[in-house]
Design a protein around this nucleic acid. Structure first.
Lengths: 147, 147
DNA sequence: CCCTTGGGTTCGGAATCCGAACCGTAGCTG
DNA sequence: CAGCTACGGTTCGGATTCCGAACCCAAGGG
């Protein structure tokens, strides 16, 4: 694997990495996928300061990953919900989870489980060739610089 | 999707998220997967300060994601290489890349491309049911709290 | 000998993060 | 209607972390 020089702005990983690789953002998204929607709930379920939470929610809304929406409970409240762009991050979280289960699992095992709604099967993540369908590891992939 | 209260330490996403959701770590891993191995090369290819680079490389080594190894060039040098645990993060990076290509792609397109070495096909990432094989989105998955 | 290179470590100042306090709007209570 | 509470923030001061620049040391090379 020869080192590939990369123009950072043109690497499809670097922008998302800069966004998600900001403290709290991944945890916030996990929480969103678990169904948390309200400011207060994020704040009490994660141990994050209110100011930083407000800021992170703000940038996620700006990025179009969450949308802030008013709704009527007993009175007007707001919720932060995943947009389509946000929902599309699911594979990232699932890949993280799979890795976490394999390499950083707590002794007692996870505190929740995920299953396919309709058949009850577990959730798997796979990197596969679009052409031949073979499961791929880093070693099976060639990097071709374009510029 | 009812909100699920999660004991943070028992969520298989939270530990990896805390680790990778630290500034620079994801970018560093991307670089590692592209073949960068030496301190100086990380430093010149990414725009990171030497002190933080040293620290991040250190924690990744502590975590067993990279291993630091001496080797002989014209003289003794060191390289940071992905361990098996590190290589196993490939799906995370690929999921990030896929998302980046779809939602944050730069106008000119990516600066490099990935292909299956043996058949030339593209690299795909899939979340699928272990049982029935169906492709899954967040909506198809049920969260079951265990404790 | 002095110079260069790789791989760091060590500053001081700048940017972030945190907890705690505050604020405004709304409803509910009496 | 006066006062209280809940939500969804914003605004502080102090504690961390980050950064760039400078320094350090070992091993060659000229």
């Amino acid at each position: 694997m020869a080192p590939v020089k990369v123009v950072d702005e043109l690497c499809p990983v670097s922008l998302p990495a800069a966004l998600l690789g900001e403290r709290w953002t991944l945890l916030l998204l996990r929480q969103a996928f678990l169904g948390t929607r309200r400011f207060e709930d994020f704040q009490s379920e994660m141990d994050i300061s209110r100011s930083v939470l407000a800021e992170r929610l703000g940038t996620l809304v700006e990025e179009g990953i969450l949308r802030r929406e008013a709704y009527k409970d007993v009175r007007t409240r707001y919720e932060y919900r995943l947009t389509e762009k946000g929902l599309d991050l699911y594979p990232v979280l699932m890949a993280l989870r799979k890795w976490g289960n394999r390499w950083m699992a707590p002794d007692e095992g996870p505190s929740y489980d995920l299953h396919h709604r309709s058949c009850g099967g577990g959730v798997g993540v796979h990197v596969a060739c679009d052409e031949c369908g073979a499961e791929l590891t880093a070693r099976d992939v060639r990097v071709t610089p374009l510029r």
